[in-house]
């Protein structure tokens, strides 16, 4: 069972793990984590210039833009209008870098600062506008199947439901909702990519997302704030492979009662 490439819009990848570039203690550590995770897509944010580290170095000095597809996000936006502005700014920068991520945006339109949950109405509005503007929209959604369906109908290239709130480390809180989203979005369209986007706390969360049938997982804090981020990157990559393979292998059904693994016949006990 060789792994299949993951196709999202105009691009295909061997790795199904998307890794964020925020919150690492140093740029060197970030670079090492990206390497250990074997990811091919990294997310970035768009912010006012002059955010350099103590040594006046910038993020892009530590990301090989010929190797990674850079997925610019609209994190921090609470209105459709702002998210659309940020998406256009991000595209302009990635076009200068000739990076394939210029075609993409990771759309986040958030409802409030405490939960960072998506605003479903504004997210839908921004999706429609950005699709019209030629973007391939990878859209952050809640785990609500109806919201996910609406976003796909609006032309989103990929719907990315949250496992749990961003950075919360709570894992996949409602696996049934994720299953329903997968079933609905992939009905008659098996290759439609669904990426679990937020809340991953540890490797088993990644495995669970993949076992449910997700096409990939996007995470950041789970690696960046682990005690040993490089080791956690490796763990996440291995969990992704394990979960992906397990899903394709086809798990046994859950049953209430036991089924013996050894033959009943021939036992000396009566």
């Amino acid at each position: 069972m060789d792994p299949q490439p993951l196709t999202i819009g105009s691009q295909s990848f061997r790795s199904r793990l998307f890794v964020g570039t925020g919150k690492y203690e140093t740029y060197e550590l970030m670079r090492e984590c990206l390497e250990a995770s074997r990811c091919e897509v990294v997310t970035v944010a768009v912010r006012r210039e002059r955010l350099f580290d103590a040594q006046n170095r910038s993020l892009l000095e530590f990301i090989d833009t010929s190797r990674y597809t850079i997925l610019p996000n609209t994190a921090g936006c609470f209105t459709a209008e702002d998210a659309i502005r940020v998406a256009r700014l991000g595209r302009d920068i990635l076009e200068q870098l000739s990076n394939p991520g210029a075609a993409w945006v990771k759309l986040e339109v958030l409802h409030d600062k405490k939960t960072l949950l998506p605003d479903p109405v504004a997210t839908l509005e921004a999706t429609k506008e950005l699709v019209k503007d030629g973007f391939q929209v990878l859209v952050y959604s809640s785990d609500d199947p109806a919201a996910a369906c609406r976003l796909k109908e609006a032309g989103a290239t990929s719907v990315m439901p949250a496992g749990s709130p961003i950075g919360s480390g709570q894992g996949i809180l409602n696996p049934n909702a994720i299953r329903i989203i997968l079933e609905m979005l992939k009905e008659g369209d098996a290759d439609y990519p669904v990426i679990v986007d937020a809340g991953v706390g540890t490797a088993s969360d990644v495995a669970i997302a993949m076992e449910l049938g997700a096409d990939g997982v996007l995470l950041n804090t789970g690696i960046a704030h682990a005690k040993n981020p490089v080791a956690m990157s490796r763990a996440m990559a291995q969990a992704l492979d394990a979960g992906y393979l397990a899903h394709r292998a086809g798990r046994i059904p859950r049953k209430l009662y036991a089924t013996a693994s050894s033959p009943i016949e021939g036992t000396i006990v009566y």
Partner: peptide, 10 residues
């Protein structure tokens, strides 16, 4: 005027 660049993010 806004002048922006790319920074680390998730």
């Amino acid at each position: 005027v806004e002048i922006v660049t790319l920074v680390g993010g998730g």
